[in-house]
């Protein structure tokens, strides 16, 4: 944990409201993005991501700073997603990979700058980029919750195997083998898109 993180943590543990706003501002997009990809729905993502930060504040006194603050946040976020998916699963909810209307609009607006944009310009390329985004999200939604977590932590959040082990509580070898299986499953799902 860096010096600036330790300072932030001590302010958080002193229940400093400004520190709270600083911390949420720093991590809100990372946590929201992860939760959105896990839940596959903007409404659920906002609800769960907000609860992640509420939990951070409920538990801030018990955090000793043994890991990076972001690692702890990811652990809380993945646990919240797991619990929420389990709860929704009992009510026949399934992350479908369908993009929300608002999300589609945001994507269309940003397609011109997005790295997902194909190299060919024009409306066809924009549609192709959107279709690929939808397909990848649908493929992620097909994975079981644990595989989905591993793929997102590694390939979206760019965490190392060690960090993923700390977030998930899995052994390093288990992280590697399950991540590999998850990627193979996703590859099969995306087969028609891959040339």
């Amino acid at each position: 944990m860096s010096v600036s993180e330790r300072l932030l943590l001590s302010r958080l543990q002193a229940r400093d409201e400004e520190a709270f706003e600083e911390m949420v501002g720093l991590y809100q997009n990372k946590i929201y993005n992860l939760v959105y990809r896990m839940m596959g729905n903007a409404g659920e993502a906002e609800e769960v991501a907000q609860e992640v930060f509420v939990t951070v504040f409920k538990s801030i006194d018990s955090f000793r700073g043994d890991s990076k603050l972001s690692t702890w946040l990811y652990r809380i976020a993945t646990n919240h997603c797991k619990n929420r998916l389990k709860y929704l699963g009992r009510r026949s909810y399934k992350a479908t990979g369908e993009l929300d209307e608002a999300v589609e609009r945001e994507l269309q607006d940003t397609q011109t700058t997005s790295s997902m944009r194909p190299h060919i310009d024009g409306p066809e390329a924009v549609l192709e980029g959107l279709e690929l985004e939808r397909t990848v999200q649908a493929g992620i939604a097909e994975l079981d919750e644990e595989h989905r977590t591993l793929v997102l932590l590694r390939d979206v959040e760019d965490l190392s195997y060690d960090e993923i082990a700390k977030v998930t509580g899995l052994e390093l070898g288990t992280v590697k083998s399950r991540l590999h299986r998850a990627r193979l499953q996703l590859k099969e799902f995306l087969a028609r898109w891959l040339k």
Binding site: E17, F20, E21, V24, G25, Q28, N29, I31, Y32, N33, Y36, R37, A45, E46, A49, Q50, E51, F53, V54, F57, V103, E106, L107, T110, S114, S115, M116, L132, E133, V136, Q137, I140, V151, L152, D155, V156, D158, R183, L184, L186, K187, L190, A191, W193, L194, K195
Partner: peptide, 30 residues
């Protein structure tokens, strides 16, 4: 090649941003 394309396509997903009133929403909840 397909495996690499799969990994890359996940990495290129559009990064979603939290809604503009997110911080205020969390503060209100607390």
């Amino acid at each position: 090649q397909r495996f690499q394309q799969t990994v890359e396509s996940v990495g290129r997903l559009h990064p979603m941003s939290a809604p503009p009133d997110f911080v205020a929403g969390v503060r209100d909840r607390i």
